[in-house]
Amino acid sequence: MSTIQAAEKPPEDIEIPKPELSIVVEFTGGLEMLFSDQRRHPLSIPVTNKEGNPLTIADLIEHLCNHTMKDTRKELFVLDDHLRPGILVLINDADWELEGEEAYEIQAGDNILFVSTLHGG
């Protein structure tokens, strides 16, 4: 879905294209099989989302589905538009529940780890 912006804005609102954020996303606990069998993915992601707001974990999850995941089994990562229950997220080693979960705004240099708890005993 592409949004075409009408260029009706006053000049002072025109912004220099923002640089991308460099982050590292990691998948483990079986999730790596959905992401080219690769645990560590250094990524450059847009600084803002479609609405122009700072990129959150929710936006990152969508970005990962659309750009990083080659596997077609999206439902193993996302269910009903949210991260599948049973997948933990660690933001710089801290439980995402301590960081606002999907609403956490991603910072440059962040390490974001997705761990499935569902595989294997």
Partner: peptide, 12 residues
Amino acid sequence: STECIYSPEAFR
């Protein structure tokens, strides 16, 4: 961690 290759995806 791995999923058994014979195990169907029966999460839902």
